[in-house]
Amino acid sequence: MHAQVRHARFSLIVIGVATLLSVGGYLVALNYLGPKRASGAIGFLGLAGLMGFAGLFYRRRPGQTGVVMDERDSQIRDRTRLGAAMLVLFGFWGVVCMGTWFWFALRYGADAKEIFTIGIPVYWLPFLYMGSAILFEAVWSASILVHYGFGGKDDEA
């Protein structure tokens, strides 16, 4: 199986586990600790840092001959990365920024200027950033798996 496929699968598993633990932990702790303390469970998202070990997949193993990445792999990596970046930029941030504005305009009318000034807790900002970064990694990894036929198509001779 290609190194990029193993990398993509590893990233999706790490993201899945980190998301599950943080959301699940928050929901479980919500009943016992209240929303403020339960939000500590979001710290499980830090597990996403394990993706940093993905570089190990590109190591040449003992006895392995040939190249690990070639021009086609680089092309797939670049194309999927660009696609994922565009989706996060226009999808995620489009929904967060434009969607919020549009929802307010629909709900309160375009003239309700005083309601258009909203405040969000400042600690949401890193979560928004981390959320978009994790979404980017997830979309990128899923696109790579699609390009390689989930690891099976390219191994058929």
Partner: peptide, 28 residues
Amino acid sequence: QQELAERVGVTRQTIIALEANRYAPSLL
């Protein structure tokens, strides 16, 4: 396919994709 891949400096998967006409190679 593995031998050819090693001789031309690509992975076996790329040779497979080429033979299946799923990939257009660079001029090089």
